[in-house]
Design a binder for these strands. Sequence first.
DNA 1: CCGCGACGTAGACAGCGTCTACAACTCTTT
DNA 2: AAAGAGTTGTAGACGCTGTCTACGTCGCGG
Lengths: 188, 188
Amino acid sequence: MGSDPRQHLIASATALLADEGVEAVTLRRIAREAGVSHGAPLRHFAGRTELLSAVASTGFAELRRRGETSAGATAAERLRAACLAYLDFALGNPAMFELMFRHDLIDAHAPELAGTSDALFTGFCELVRGAQEEQGWRTGTDSRLLAASLWSALHGLAELWLWGELGRALKPDEIDAVLRVTLETYLR
Amino acid sequence: MGSDPRQHLIASATALLADEGVEAVTLRRIAREAGVSHGAPLRHFAGRTELLSAVASTGFAELRRRGETSAGATAAERLRAACLAYLDFALGNPAMFELMFRHDLIDAHAPELAGTSDALFTGFCELVRGAQEEQGWRTGTDSRLLAASLWSALHGLAELWLWGELGRALKPDEIDAVLRVTLETYLR
DNA sequence: CCGCGACGTAGACAGCGTCTACAACTCTTT
DNA sequence: AAAGAGTTGTAGACGCTGTCTACGTCGCGG
Protein backbone atom coordinates (compact mmCIF):
# COMPACT_ATOMS: atom_id res chain seq x y z
CA MET A 1 0.00 0.00 0.00
CA GLY A 2 1.05 3.63 -0.36
CA SER A 3 2.92 5.69 2.16
CA ASP A 4 -0.26 6.61 3.98
CA PRO A 5 -2.42 3.49 3.88
CA ARG A 6 -5.21 5.13 5.87
CA GLN A 7 -5.58 7.91 3.30
CA HIS A 8 -5.27 5.42 0.49
CA LEU A 9 -8.20 3.40 1.85
CA ILE A 10 -10.32 6.51 2.32
CA ALA A 11 -9.60 7.51 -1.26
CA SER A 12 -10.55 4.09 -2.60
CA ALA A 13 -13.74 4.14 -0.57
CA THR A 14 -14.62 7.64 -1.76
CA ALA A 15 -14.11 6.67 -5.40
CA LEU A 16 -16.21 3.55 -4.93
CA LEU A 17 -18.89 5.61 -3.22
CA ALA A 18 -19.14 8.10 -6.06
CA ASP A 19 -19.04 5.39 -8.75
CA GLU A 20 -21.36 2.73 -7.41
CA GLY A 21 -23.24 4.16 -4.45
CA VAL A 22 -23.37 3.46 -0.76
CA GLU A 23 -24.25 -0.21 -1.10
CA ALA A 24 -21.06 -0.98 -2.98
CA VAL A 25 -18.79 0.42 -0.30
CA THR A 26 -18.03 -2.79 1.58
CA LEU A 27 -14.78 -3.45 3.39
CA ARG A 28 -13.94 -6.22 0.97
CA ARG A 29 -14.64 -4.11 -2.10
CA ILE A 30 -12.51 -1.29 -0.71
CA ALA A 31 -9.70 -3.75 -0.07
CA ARG A 32 -9.96 -5.17 -3.60
CA GLU A 33 -10.03 -1.66 -5.05
CA ALA A 34 -6.95 -0.72 -3.04
CA GLY A 35 -5.20 -3.91 -4.12
CA VAL A 36 -4.85 -5.50 -0.70
CA SER A 37 -6.26 -8.54 1.02
CA HIS A 38 -9.74 -8.49 2.49
CA GLY A 39 -8.51 -8.16 6.06
CA ALA A 40 -5.99 -5.38 5.51
CA PRO A 41 -8.34 -2.42 6.14
CA LEU A 42 -8.91 -3.66 9.68
CA ARG A 43 -5.26 -2.87 10.42
CA HIS A 44 -6.09 0.83 9.99
CA PHE A 45 -9.73 1.08 10.99
CA ALA A 46 -11.50 -0.63 13.85
CA GLY A 47 -14.27 -1.67 11.51
CA ARG A 48 -16.42 -0.69 8.59
CA THR A 49 -18.19 1.99 10.63
CA GLU A 50 -14.95 3.77 11.45
CA LEU A 51 -13.79 3.81 7.84
CA LEU A 52 -17.13 5.10 6.57
CA SER A 53 -17.16 7.72 9.31
CA ALA A 54 -13.82 8.99 8.06
CA VAL A 55 -15.21 9.18 4.53
CA ALA A 56 -18.32 11.02 5.71
CA SER A 57 -16.13 13.42 7.64
CA THR A 58 -14.43 14.52 4.42
CA GLY A 59 -17.91 15.13 3.02
CA PHE A 60 -18.83 17.42 5.90
CA ALA A 61 -15.54 19.25 5.53
CA GLU A 62 -16.11 19.77 1.81
CA LEU A 63 -19.66 20.96 2.40
CA ARG A 64 -18.47 23.45 5.00
CA ARG A 65 -15.78 24.71 2.65
CA ARG A 66 -18.37 25.38 -0.02
CA GLY A 67 -20.63 27.18 2.40
CA GLU A 68 -17.90 29.39 3.77
CA THR A 69 -16.53 30.47 0.43
CA SER A 70 -19.94 31.37 -0.95
CA ALA A 71 -19.67 34.86 -2.32
CA GLY A 72 -21.92 37.79 -1.60
CA ALA A 73 -21.64 41.43 -0.66
CA THR A 74 -24.11 41.30 2.19
CA ALA A 75 -24.49 38.70 4.91
CA ALA A 76 -27.97 37.89 3.60
CA GLU A 77 -26.56 37.18 0.17
CA ARG A 78 -23.86 34.93 1.63
CA LEU A 79 -26.50 33.02 3.58
CA ARG A 80 -28.58 32.60 0.46
CA ALA A 81 -25.54 31.38 -1.47
CA ALA A 82 -24.74 28.87 1.28
CA CYS A 83 -28.28 27.50 1.09
CA LEU A 84 -27.93 27.05 -2.66
CA ALA A 85 -24.56 25.41 -2.11
CA TYR A 86 -26.12 22.90 0.27
CA LEU A 87 -28.66 21.76 -2.31
CA ASP A 88 -26.02 21.86 -5.02
CA PHE A 89 -23.77 19.55 -3.01
CA ALA A 90 -26.56 17.12 -2.20
CA LEU A 91 -27.77 16.85 -5.79
CA GLY A 92 -24.25 16.72 -7.20
CA ASN A 93 -22.90 14.13 -4.76
CA PRO A 94 -25.95 12.05 -3.89
CA ALA A 95 -24.04 9.03 -2.61
CA MET A 96 -21.78 11.07 -0.35
CA PHE A 97 -24.76 13.05 0.90
CA GLU A 98 -26.61 9.85 1.68
CA LEU A 99 -23.66 8.38 3.54
CA MET A 100 -23.26 11.53 5.62
CA PHE A 101 -26.68 10.99 7.16
CA ARG A 102 -26.81 7.21 7.34
CA HIS A 103 -26.42 6.83 11.06
CA ASP A 104 -26.55 3.05 10.70
CA LEU A 105 -23.35 3.13 8.68
CA ILE A 106 -21.36 5.81 10.45
CA ASP A 107 -20.78 6.74 14.07
CA ALA A 108 -21.93 10.29 14.71
CA HIS A 109 -19.96 10.30 17.96
CA ALA A 110 -16.63 9.52 16.34
CA PRO A 111 -14.45 12.50 17.31
CA GLU A 112 -13.36 13.44 13.80
CA LEU A 113 -16.85 13.23 12.34
CA ALA A 114 -18.46 15.04 15.25
CA GLY A 115 -15.93 17.81 14.79
CA THR A 116 -16.54 18.41 11.11
CA SER A 117 -20.31 18.17 11.34
CA ASP A 118 -20.46 20.43 14.38
CA ALA A 119 -18.26 22.92 12.57
CA LEU A 120 -20.69 22.89 9.68
CA PHE A 121 -23.64 23.68 11.89
CA THR A 122 -21.74 26.32 13.81
CA GLY A 123 -20.68 28.03 10.61
CA PHE A 124 -24.24 28.00 9.38
CA CYS A 125 -25.42 29.50 12.67
CA GLU A 126 -22.96 32.35 12.23
CA LEU A 127 -24.21 33.02 8.72
CA VAL A 128 -27.73 33.23 10.07
CA ARG A 129 -26.72 35.46 12.94
CA GLY A 130 -24.82 37.72 10.56
CA ALA A 131 -27.88 38.15 8.37
CA GLN A 132 -30.00 38.82 11.41
CA GLU A 133 -27.73 41.54 12.73
CA GLU A 134 -26.95 43.16 9.41
CA GLN A 135 -30.53 43.84 8.44
CA GLY A 136 -33.05 43.51 11.24
CA TRP A 137 -34.23 40.15 9.92
CA ARG A 138 -36.18 38.06 12.41
CA THR A 139 -34.34 39.59 15.31
CA GLY A 140 -36.78 38.11 17.77
CA THR A 141 -35.77 34.51 17.20
CA ASP A 142 -32.72 32.69 18.59
CA SER A 143 -30.23 32.31 15.76
CA ARG A 144 -29.47 28.71 16.69
CA LEU A 145 -33.11 27.73 16.48
CA LEU A 146 -33.60 29.66 13.27
CA ALA A 147 -30.51 28.07 11.76
CA ALA A 148 -31.72 24.61 12.75
CA SER A 149 -35.12 25.30 11.20
CA LEU A 150 -33.69 26.60 7.94
CA TRP A 151 -31.13 23.83 7.71
CA SER A 152 -33.90 21.28 8.26
CA ALA A 153 -35.90 22.76 5.43
CA LEU A 154 -32.95 22.51 3.05
CA HIS A 155 -32.01 19.06 4.24
CA GLY A 156 -35.53 17.71 3.94
CA LEU A 157 -35.84 19.07 0.42
CA ALA A 158 -32.63 17.34 -0.61
CA GLU A 159 -33.63 14.06 1.00
CA LEU A 160 -37.16 13.95 -0.37
CA TRP A 161 -35.95 14.87 -3.80
CA LEU A 162 -33.16 12.31 -3.88
CA TRP A 163 -35.53 9.70 -2.51
CA GLY A 164 -37.81 10.35 -5.43
CA GLU A 165 -40.89 10.99 -3.37
CA LEU A 166 -41.26 14.49 -4.68
CA GLY A 167 -40.19 13.26 -8.08
CA ARG A 168 -43.50 11.56 -8.73
CA ALA A 169 -45.61 14.48 -7.61
CA LEU A 170 -43.44 17.19 -9.16
CA LYS A 171 -41.75 17.58 -12.51
CA PRO A 172 -37.95 17.27 -12.49
CA ASP A 173 -37.36 20.95 -13.03
CA GLU A 174 -39.71 21.97 -10.26
CA ILE A 175 -37.21 21.32 -7.50
CA ASP A 176 -35.72 24.73 -8.21
CA ALA A 177 -39.17 26.22 -7.81
CA VAL A 178 -39.65 24.49 -4.45
CA LEU A 179 -36.25 25.70 -3.32
CA ARG A 180 -37.22 29.22 -4.31
CA VAL A 181 -40.42 28.92 -2.28
CA THR A 182 -38.43 27.77 0.74
CA LEU A 183 -35.95 30.61 0.45
CA GLU A 184 -38.73 33.15 -0.09
CA THR A 185 -40.46 31.82 3.00
CA TYR A 186 -37.42 32.16 5.21
CA LEU A 187 -35.38 35.02 3.79
CA ARG A 188 -37.80 37.91 3.90
CA MET B 1 -48.83 -20.07 9.53
CA GLY B 2 -52.12 -18.26 10.06
CA SER B 3 -54.98 -17.97 7.64
CA ASP B 4 -53.36 -15.00 5.91
CA PRO B 5 -49.65 -15.72 5.87
CA ARG B 6 -48.84 -12.50 4.06
CA GLN B 7 -50.43 -10.41 6.79
CA HIS B 8 -48.83 -12.59 9.44
CA LEU B 9 -45.37 -11.91 8.02
CA ILE B 10 -46.02 -8.17 7.78
CA ALA B 11 -47.14 -8.18 11.41
CA SER B 12 -44.02 -10.05 12.52
CA ALA B 13 -41.83 -7.67 10.57
CA THR B 14 -43.60 -4.63 12.01
CA ALA B 15 -43.17 -5.88 15.54
CA LEU B 16 -39.51 -6.64 14.94
CA LEU B 17 -39.07 -3.20 13.42
CA ALA B 18 -40.54 -1.41 16.42
CA ASP B 19 -38.65 -3.57 18.92
CA GLU B 20 -35.18 -3.77 17.46
CA GLY B 21 -34.91 -1.26 14.64
CA VAL B 22 -34.45 -1.46 10.90
CA GLU B 23 -31.25 -3.50 11.02
CA ALA B 24 -32.95 -6.37 12.79
CA VAL B 25 -35.63 -6.79 10.14
CA THR B 26 -34.01 -9.50 8.04
CA LEU B 27 -35.94 -12.13 6.15
CA ARG B 28 -34.53 -14.84 8.38
CA ARG B 29 -35.42 -13.03 11.61
CA ILE B 30 -38.93 -12.41 10.34
CA ALA B 31 -39.25 -16.08 9.47
CA ARG B 32 -37.99 -17.14 12.91
CA GLU B 33 -40.34 -14.66 14.60
CA ALA B 34 -43.24 -16.00 12.59
CA GLY B 35 -42.26 -19.57 13.40
CA VAL B 36 -41.52 -20.74 9.89
CA SER B 37 -38.42 -21.83 8.01
CA HIS B 38 -36.03 -19.27 6.62
CA GLY B 39 -37.24 -19.67 3.07
CA ALA B 40 -40.96 -19.49 3.73
CA PRO B 41 -41.35 -15.71 3.36
CA LEU B 42 -40.17 -15.97 -0.24
CA ARG B 43 -43.38 -17.89 -1.02
CA HIS B 44 -45.35 -14.70 -0.31
CA PHE B 45 -42.94 -11.92 -1.24
CA ALA B 46 -40.56 -11.76 -4.17
CA GLY B 47 -37.76 -10.71 -1.83
CA ARG B 48 -36.84 -8.69 1.17
CA THR B 49 -37.49 -5.43 -0.64
CA GLU B 50 -41.06 -6.36 -1.43
CA LEU B 51 -41.82 -7.36 2.15
CA LEU B 52 -40.30 -4.19 3.57
CA SER B 53 -42.17 -2.13 0.99
CA ALA B 54 -45.42 -3.63 2.25
CA VAL B 55 -44.45 -2.75 5.83
CA ALA B 56 -43.53 0.80 4.85
CA SER B 57 -46.83 1.12 3.02
CA THR B 58 -48.71 0.52 6.26
CA GLY B 59 -46.61 3.28 7.77
CA PHE B 60 -47.62 5.75 5.06
CA ALA B 61 -51.24 4.73 5.48
CA GLU B 62 -51.10 5.27 9.24
CA LEU B 63 -49.40 8.63 8.80
CA ARG B 64 -52.05 9.73 6.35
CA ARG B 65 -54.80 8.61 8.71
CA ARG B 66 -53.34 10.73 11.47
CA GLY B 67 -53.04 13.74 9.22
CA GLU B 68 -56.58 13.49 7.93
CA THR B 69 -58.21 13.09 11.31
CA SER B 70 -56.34 16.03 12.81
CA ALA B 71 -58.95 18.24 14.42
CA GLY B 72 -59.40 21.96 13.93
CA ALA B 73 -62.18 24.41 13.22
CA THR B 74 -60.39 26.23 10.43
CA ALA B 75 -58.36 24.83 7.56
CA ALA B 76 -55.29 26.58 8.91
CA GLU B 77 -55.71 24.85 12.26
CA ARG B 78 -56.10 21.47 10.58
CA LEU B 79 -52.94 22.08 8.56
CA ARG B 80 -51.07 23.02 11.69
CA ALA B 81 -52.34 19.92 13.47
CA ALA B 82 -51.25 17.75 10.54
CA CYS B 83 -47.74 19.22 10.75
CA LEU B 84 -47.56 18.43 14.44
CA ALA B 85 -48.87 14.93 13.71
CA TYR B 86 -46.05 14.39 11.21
CA LEU B 87 -43.37 15.17 13.77
CA ASP B 88 -45.24 13.23 16.41
CA PHE B 89 -45.32 10.16 14.21
CA ALA B 90 -41.64 10.41 13.31
CA LEU B 91 -40.47 10.84 16.89
CA GLY B 92 -42.86 8.21 18.22
CA ASN B 93 -42.09 5.57 15.58
CA PRO B 94 -38.49 6.27 14.63
CA ALA B 95 -37.78 2.86 13.13
CA MET B 96 -40.89 2.88 10.94
CA PHE B 97 -40.18 6.44 9.90
CA GLU B 98 -36.64 5.52 8.95
CA LEU B 99 -37.78 2.52 6.93
CA MET B 100 -40.35 4.60 5.06
CA PHE B 101 -37.56 6.72 3.55
CA ARG B 102 -34.83 4.12 3.14
CA HIS B 103 -34.93 3.80 -0.62
CA ASP B 104 -32.22 1.15 -0.50
CA LEU B 105 -34.53 -1.14 1.46
CA ILE B 106 -37.88 -0.49 -0.17
CA ASP B 107 -39.05 -0.01 -3.73
CA ALA B 108 -40.72 3.36 -4.13
CA HIS B 109 -42.23 2.20 -7.42
CA ALA B 110 -44.04 -0.78 -5.91
CA PRO B 111 -47.69 -0.10 -6.74
CA GLU B 112 -49.02 -0.43 -3.21
CA LEU B 113 -46.32 1.76 -1.67
CA ALA B 114 -46.52 4.36 -4.42
CA GLY B 115 -50.25 4.55 -3.85
CA THR B 116 -50.11 5.16 -0.11
CA SER B 117 -47.25 7.64 -0.27
CA ASP B 118 -48.81 9.55 -3.16
CA ALA B 119 -52.07 9.68 -1.25
CA LEU B 120 -50.21 11.17 1.70
CA PHE B 121 -48.71 13.94 -0.40
CA THR B 122 -51.97 14.61 -2.19
CA GLY B 123 -53.82 14.91 1.09
CA PHE B 124 -51.21 17.29 2.41
CA CYS B 125 -51.52 19.40 -0.75
CA GLU B 126 -55.24 19.69 -0.18
CA LEU B 127 -54.73 20.79 3.39
CA VAL B 128 -52.39 23.50 2.14
CA ARG B 129 -54.75 24.58 -0.61
CA GLY B 130 -57.60 24.70 1.88
CA ALA B 131 -55.67 27.00 4.16
CA GLN B 132 -54.70 29.17 1.22
CA GLU B 133 -58.26 29.61 0.01
CA GLU B 134 -59.84 30.01 3.43
CA GLN B 135 -57.74 32.93 4.53
CA GLY B 136 -55.78 34.64 1.79
CA TRP B 137 -52.55 32.98 2.92
CA ARG B 138 -49.77 33.00 0.33
CA THR B 139 -52.22 32.98 -2.51
CA GLY B 140 -49.51 33.78 -5.01
CA THR B 141 -47.70 30.45 -4.69
CA ASP B 142 -48.67 27.14 -6.26
CA SER B 143 -50.10 24.95 -3.52
CA ARG B 144 -48.17 21.90 -4.71
CA LEU B 145 -44.86 23.74 -4.50
CA LEU B 146 -45.77 25.25 -1.15
CA ALA B 147 -46.84 21.87 0.20
CA ALA B 148 -43.58 20.31 -1.00
CA SER B 149 -41.59 23.06 0.68
CA LEU B 150 -43.42 22.78 3.98
CA TRP B 151 -43.31 19.02 3.97
CA SER B 152 -39.57 19.15 3.33
CA ALA B 153 -39.10 21.42 6.30
CA LEU B 154 -40.96 19.04 8.59
CA HIS B 155 -39.27 16.00 7.14
CA GLY B 156 -35.80 17.47 7.45
CA LEU B 157 -36.42 18.44 11.03
CA ALA B 158 -37.51 14.90 11.89
CA GLU B 159 -34.53 13.36 10.10
CA LEU B 160 -31.91 15.64 11.53
CA TRP B 161 -33.32 15.25 14.99
CA LEU B 162 -33.54 11.47 14.82
CA TRP B 163 -30.08 11.34 13.35
CA GLY B 164 -28.81 13.18 16.37
CA GLU B 165 -27.10 15.96 14.46
CA LEU B 166 -29.25 18.64 16.00
CA GLY B 167 -29.08 16.77 19.29
CA ARG B 168 -25.51 17.82 19.90
CA ALA B 169 -26.05 21.47 19.04
CA LEU B 170 -29.44 21.77 20.69
CA LYS B 171 -30.86 20.64 24.01
CA PRO B 172 -33.34 17.76 23.87
CA ASP B 173 -36.34 19.95 24.63
CA GLU B 174 -35.42 22.50 22.01
CA ILE B 175 -36.82 20.50 19.14
CA ASP B 176 -40.26 21.83 20.03
CA ALA B 177 -38.83 25.33 19.81
CA VAL B 178 -37.37 24.64 16.36
CA LEU B 179 -40.67 23.20 15.21
CA ARG B 180 -42.41 26.33 16.46
CA VAL B 181 -39.95 28.49 14.50
CA THR B 182 -40.65 26.46 11.36
CA LEU B 183 -44.41 26.73 11.77
CA GLU B 184 -44.17 30.45 12.56
CA THR B 185 -42.11 30.91 9.42
CA TYR B 186 -44.58 29.18 7.16
CA LEU B 187 -47.98 29.69 8.71
CA ARG B 188 -48.31 33.44 8.86
C1' DC C 1 21.88 -9.21 16.57
C1' DC C 2 17.83 -9.66 18.29
C1' DG C 3 13.34 -8.72 19.49
C1' DC C 4 9.32 -6.16 18.92
C1' DG C 5 5.84 -3.61 16.84
C1' DA C 6 3.55 -2.43 12.51
C1' DC C 7 1.59 -4.28 8.51
C1' DG C 8 -0.28 -7.64 5.30
C1' DT C 9 -2.25 -12.45 4.35
C1' DA C 10 -5.18 -16.43 4.54
C1' DG C 11 -8.55 -18.96 6.67
C1' DA C 12 -12.42 -19.46 9.48
C1' DC C 13 -17.06 -18.34 11.34
C1' DA C 14 -21.81 -16.74 11.57
C1' DG C 15 -25.19 -14.15 9.36
C1' DC C 16 -27.45 -12.54 5.32
C1' DG C 17 -30.56 -12.87 0.63
C1' DT C 18 -31.70 -15.86 -2.74
C1' DC C 19 -32.18 -20.14 -5.51
C1' DT C 20 -33.39 -24.99 -6.08
C1' DA C 21 -35.02 -29.66 -5.13
C1' DC C 22 -38.30 -31.90 -2.59
C1' DA C 23 -42.45 -33.03 0.25
C1' DA C 24 -47.18 -32.35 1.75
C1' DC C 25 -51.61 -30.67 1.37
C1' DT C 26 -55.77 -28.74 -1.15
C1' DC C 27 -58.70 -28.34 -4.89
C1' DT C 28 -60.36 -29.29 -9.54
C1' DT C 29 -61.29 -32.19 -13.17
C1' DT C 30 -62.28 -36.43 -15.14
C1' DA D 1 -63.06 -42.06 -6.51
C1' DA D 2 -58.65 -41.15 -8.79
C1' DA D 3 -55.44 -38.26 -10.75
C1' DG D 4 -53.25 -34.20 -11.59
C1' DA D 5 -52.01 -29.40 -10.72
C1' DG D 6 -51.14 -25.48 -7.90
C1' DT D 7 -49.94 -23.69 -3.29
C1' DT D 8 -47.23 -23.62 0.70
C1' DG D 9 -43.50 -25.02 3.75
C1' DT D 10 -38.74 -27.26 4.36
C1' DA D 11 -33.85 -28.06 3.96
C1' DG D 12 -29.70 -27.34 1.80
C1' DA D 13 -26.62 -24.85 -1.03
C1' DC D 14 -24.19 -20.67 -2.99
C1' DG D 15 -21.81 -16.37 -2.69
C1' DC D 16 -21.62 -12.32 -0.32
C1' DT D 17 -20.73 -9.70 3.97
C1' DG D 18 -18.02 -8.07 8.66
C1' DT D 19 -15.03 -9.63 11.94
C1' DC D 20 -11.69 -12.56 14.45
C1' DT D 21 -7.45 -15.30 14.76
C1' DA D 22 -3.07 -17.37 13.57
C1' DC D 23 0.64 -16.80 10.85
C1' DG D 24 4.11 -14.58 8.34
C1' DT D 25 7.33 -10.59 7.03
C1' DC D 26 9.31 -6.55 7.17
C1' DG D 27 12.06 -2.39 9.53
C1' DC D 28 13.92 -0.18 13.31
C1' DG D 29 15.82 0.69 18.05
C1' DG D 30 18.06 -1.46 22.14
